[in-house]
Structure formats: structure tokens, C-alpha cells
Amino acid sequence: MNLTLKVWRQEGPSESGHIKTHEAEGIPEEASFLEMLDIVNERIIIDGGEPILFDHDCREGICGSCSLTINGVPHSKDTGITTCQVHMRRYRDGDTIWIEPFRARAFPILKDLVVDRSAFDRIIASGGYISVRTGAAPDANATPVEFEDATDSFNSAACIGCGACVAACKNASAMLFVGAKANHLNLLPQGAPEKDQRTLAMVRTMDGEGFGNCTNQYECEAVCPKEISSDVIAKLNRDYAAASAREAVD
């Protein structure tokens, strides 16, 4: 199939970018989206041009490295998958595809479609951990966990930190990511002792990184490749209010 690609090209972090048109001809239907970009890049290199830079790693939907906003939707309009799992059979011959980076002030563009998502790492570093004594692993069921809590925590832990929630949000808010990461630990007995400290620290770091504020439009939930529910945001709001109140009393 033959496609027209409208791709965001940007030389470097401080350069201004623009949309450049690339023709993608003779793309096999069975190619994945990233393989299609590989084919286009090989041709660009042969012609002596600069290949289109994009992030990728595992190419099986679990690492959270690939990004790309495809036709205005992070990871494409297909739900519950990452960009690397999008296949060209989803497109028709002659289609025009817009490919842009994940856009957010907190995710500065490094080059072309590659953005710096280390703001997420700093949020995790501020509270996404539990303090435990080292030693042998405890017995499997030594600490009982309610079934509902275990399920909700596990669903939250499915977050791969790709940043699609931020890219899809009209306000570039990171609430789904922070909600998932805080909820994952806050729900478990192992995470309970540091719950307030974690919630306050992660929200404050998020605010400091320049993400926007949640306006409850649930665009994040619609694009999340792991289909994390925005209920984690409601829970984060509740935990933050309780933690702030306890901090004020202390």
C-alpha cells in the first residue's frame, strides 16, 4: 500500500520543528507501524537524508518505550495497545497519516518524535517505592491482602509508564500515571506505612514537573494501552485530601 506520512521533524531540543511530508510506498499490510517507519527510514538513509527518530524497544507492548501520536491519538485509535502493536492492515491504500511526538511541556522533544519522559522517573523516585528490611523473600501468603485490593493494585501495577495519558490529556496532566503508581502501593499492606508521604510527594513532584491538571475528561483512560481506569484518579484525589488533612493536624 502507498501512504502519505505527515511527520513532525525537529533537529534538536532547542530547534523549532515542523511537519514534513514523506511518501511511504509499497508498504506490506503485514508490517507493524514501526516496521513501516523502519522501511521509510532505510529509504531516507539510502537517499542520504536524516532518518526519522522514534523511541522503541521490546516491540511487544510491554516496555513502554514506543510513543507516537498517530492521527492525533497516542498509540493510534486502536484501544488497549501500544504503537508497536499497531499494524498497517488497519490502514487503507492512499491514507494520509499524521505522526507527532507525545506533546507536553513536561516531555520536552529531544529530536523528531523522541521526547524526554524522565519526569516520570523523578515522580517514581519521589514516592514509588516501599521501605522494607532486606533478607529472604517472605512466605507467599504471610501477609493477607483483600481480593479486591489485590486486584485493584495489580491492575494499577500494569502501568508501563509510556506517557500516553499525558499525551492524550487536553491539559497534559499526568494524573492517570501518578494515580496508578500511587494506588499500586497505597492499596497494599506493604505500602501502607508510607501512604501519606508517598501521595503528597508524588503529587508535589508531578506539579513541579509542569504537568497540567485533570479536568475529568477521561481522554487518558481511552488511550491507555493497559486500560487503566480513571478510578485511580478518584482514589488519588481522596488519598491526597486525607494526607493533606493529616499533615495539617501534625
Binding site: K6, Y218, V223
Partner: peptide, 28 residues
């Protein structure tokens, strides 16, 4: 909050799409 939200998405998408945000929510 709106001013912060606009600053957080300083550069808009060239091709903007909306998945499920209602019209009311977008013009609050």
C-alpha cells in the same frame, strides 16, 4: 488551573483528535 493547563500543552497537535471528552467539558 486553566492557565496552568494551557501552559502544560504549550505546543498544540497539528492534527488534534478527541476520543471521549464531551463538548461541555472542553468549553468549561
Amino acid at each position: 488551573l486553566t492557565r496552568q493547563n494551557r501552559a502544560a500543552r504549550s505546543e498544540k497537535y497539528a492534527h488534534e483528535a478527541t476520543s471521549r471528552a464531551s463538548l461541555s467539558s472542553r468549553y468549561m
